[in-house]
Design a binder for these strands. Sequence first.
RNA 1: GGGCGGAUAGCUCAGCGGUAGAGCGUCGCCCUUACAAGGCGAGGGUCACAGGUUCGAAACCUGUUCCGCCCACCA
Length: 1101
Amino acid sequence: MTTSNELPKAYEPTDVEPRWYPMWLEKGYFTADPASTKPAFCIVLPPPNVTGSLHLGHALTATIQDILSRWKRMSGFNVLWLPGTDHAGIATQMVVERELKKTEGKSRHELGREEFLKRVWAWKEKYGARIGEQHKFLGASLDWSRERFTMDPGLSEAVKEVFIRLYEQGLLYRSEKLINWCPSCLTALSDLEVEHEEKKGSLWELSYPVKDSDRKLVVATTRPETMLGDTAVAIHPDDKRYEGLAGKTVVLPLLGREIPIIADAKLVSMEFGTGVVKVTPAHDPNDYETGLRHGLKQITIFDERARVNLNGGPYAGLDRFAARKKVLEDLAAQGLLVAEKPHALAVGTCQRCSTVVEPRLSPQWFVKAKPLADKAVEAVQAGRTKFVPETWTNTFYAWMKNIHDWCVSRQLWWGHQIPAWYPVDTSPKLDDGSIDFSKATPVVAREKPGVTAENPSGQWVQDPDVLDTWFSSGLWPFSTLGWPNQTPELKAFYPNSVMETGHDIIFFWVSRMMMMGLHFMGDVPFRTVYLHAMVRDEKGEKMSKTKGNVIDPLDIIRGAPKEALPPAIKNKFPQGMPPMGADALRFTLASLTQQGRDIKLSVDRIGGYRAFCNKIWNATRFAQMNMGDFEDDGSLFVKERALSLADRWILSRLNRAVQGTQASLAQYQFAEAASTLYQFLWGEFCDWYIELAKGALQGTDEGAKASTRATLAFCLDRVMRLLHPFMPFITEEIWQRLPIKRPTESICIAPYPEEDRRLDDPSAEAEMKPIIEAIEGIRTIRGESNLPPALKVEAQIQTASPQTRRDLERWRTYLMPLAGLQVLTVTDLGPKPPQAAADFRSNMEIYVPLAGIVDLAEERERLKKEIGRAEQEMAQIEKKFENPNFLERAPAEVVEKDKSRLRELEARKSKLGDNLRRIADGEVRIAPPADGNVNLENELKDELKGVKVPNPDSQVQEALAKLREGTKEGLSPRDHYDLGVAYMNMGLVDDAVREFNRAKDDGGTTPEAAAEAVAKASAPEARPAKLVLPKKAPAPKPAPKPAAKKAAKKPAPKAKKVAAKKAAPKKAAKKVAARKPAKKAAPKKAAKKPAAKKAAKGKKR
RNA sequence: GGGCGGAUAGCUCAGCGGUAGAGCGUCGCCCUUACAAGGCGAGGGUCACAGGUUCGAAACCUGUUCCGCCCACCA
């Protein structure tokens, strides 16, 4: 597994990712052991439709569940993540039917049930494997040895058992009721399978003559054609307009039937329409109920395809919409169409085929949902199952508390056929001699019954209907574990630990699992339901085939040519989709999973995390290139290894990252965990630690080298493990290559990092702070002045804090390379360098002399801007202080915090102002000695106590090195002077100046002599010539096209550039730049005065 | 009709009582031997609107406007 050869420079997911899954499988890491003594953790994969293909929503499901599974597995759990597929009754049947029509031009009826089912099975065999493949590409750590399919023999057994037990318990029954019927799919649908679409329609007013009277009742209806099935008209009992009409009859137009006028307060609202409602019990749910209340006849006027039947008299044979047109025409001709008003209404459509659903009276099987739902609600209320995010709890309650009986029979062929049998001998027959299922009485049984008294021939016909596909899905948490058999798996893994799925199927699936699980297992099916958001495209639109924005996860993982991409995103990728890798896709999905918010997936974002992979890869490359003969002896803690500050710091930060990741995962905060890891790896490990480590790795101190190598290896080991659940492939690849002692042969089963107190190091973090701040301060100055990175400059840091001075001195080896310094001077507060750019952070004053390097005008502008900012913030705080209530009522620490912040700002502002003046005037000001302030003397004496005197010249470097490492070797005051001279001779100006100052402070020389020496050392002539570089001229402004710009940049040799800088006129540009901030500054100053405050208010920054 | 989310930088989103944040994109300087899929720096915000609570509101409350989703048998 381990390959010692060097890593390629760029990370190629397609080279790395395919290597690992087969190995993981072969080793059986994902195979759960029901006999294990470890604590169990179980998730069952929401089974995708067997003939489907995974989309990004599935990828999100797989990612989250894999993160949980891998995390738990590494944390010592016996993990079962169980894969499977759903037969998806109606969806699959339709797919195969469509295919059959296309390829053979046949309908399923022409083929016959048996032959058709063979085709579906063949289809399933052919395409079912694709889902497995996609999951493997995603890295999903599923236990394939336990893969299930809802129509496996075992699961079918469970379905049958459940059906029969429910029937026996009176919780399942057969009845003729008004159900949702799809006239195109020719099957019943449950309420949930009907989608409501707001459509523009009309409200027609039809006139019905009252029998034996001149009066006419005007009814309002959105479906005039159903008048053919009217069996009453209804008015409100309190409606004065129609007083006395109840009990009379009207003559139904067109058909001439006489129907009663009834009074019904429930059906009729006086305010709506005309206050008169036509009642069609066989074709409208409200009318159906009304009909039951009043004992009305139910006249069915449509056949199964929603064509008018013989009850429709002259309209028989017409489609429902044609019938509507004709009915309206005929009514209009008779003057009975009173009005047509526009009216918006919600039309129920078939979830599968979008055909308008027709309410239809038909015998179906129903599950009595209420008793089951009540138990489920109780369980959630008792906290036995928790919803995450919590907000879904109420959604769940709302639906469960108002649940209707569940129509579970479907007039389909693909699915679990209902275990009910009709006696051939005694069942009523249709004209063609077949059994009339609508009138016959079935026997529910596990197997076909034999000869009975009622059916002496022993011939039985099974109910041709199949069960709703969600019926079997509802059993998934236990049917997959072997129920009704009492298997070890069932014992070990029920209840499941977590159910993780999209919130769109909370009713379809989650609630059914809750009901079935509680009823048949006596316990909730899972302890936690984590409901993730929906994945949408970049515009926030639902992914759908018709919109052409469905992306195959494999196309992102492996890349895809332009032609293969969906139309909606094709044009974004003229070169096709580059391979992003599963790790990048997974990390993106995890990063965007914010609880309760839909995910708008942008491909750019994936690219960003692909870059992150590359970053990790190259950090590893760096480590590998610098490991030398490092061998992990596990001594990071065992021996007293002398860790450097950077080592201690990064280990402390690592521990924070471990804590953060663990905490976030425990709360299902995947985005937060991902962000913690990203920030640590890139923002701390790569940006700071690796940079800081370079010194030690390239130096000659073998001890420092060893500790740095050990720290590098340690961090990479831990952070790869930490990251593994999110990015399984790259972490395995890197982990295998690290020169560490691996506790396991794969990272999949390596222990997940846990908080380690020994790594916490607050003092290291505190010590690093000024170093980082100083580097950032100098970088800011450099950036603002556009100094090229290669140009080394000098910097002076002044601080009143002896501690900070010590730290900065001690770690100047960190500071100098990272800040691009040639010279660094650290002193107490004192004379400020003239003509220097400045930055003030915490307790530090950072100066970078820029005279002769750049034009200082820009620096002046920057200072003004900074002053403006400080003033603005000060104004805000001052305003608070003007409010007496604030001082009285706000907590003391808040007030104190603001006060100290204000002091800070004031100091900052005055320092900025001072420096601005120095630059503006070219004035060299010697700051007066800080009265009674700390001086270096005792500090130095302390530090240099008993120091042995080295002689200048050759020994200076060595002595210096020791000094910097804090070695307690002494120098006498006079030696400092000598050292200073030596430094000067060597051209180390800052060191010379410092030594002269120390000599003076310690009485090693007279102040006059020291001052002279300092002046000499600081003189421009003493500076190394290469420091002096003319400021680069601003680039010619009419910007060329980016490509041209870049090309033009490259060949320009340095000398030429410099010459150009000199020649270019820059004054004009500068002036323009100078004006802008000046304008800004003016109102800010005014803002300090109370009167002007209001005007300035509102704008915060 | 009922319910649930959302509205914060150009984009995607964190923050959920005490100095407005990140990533991407933009701009500037750089191919500095881990990484140009990169480094360093900068700019960018009446936190949808209006009230209220509070010493203090992006955050809490009320209302409004948009956007999204779910549920619903008002003809």
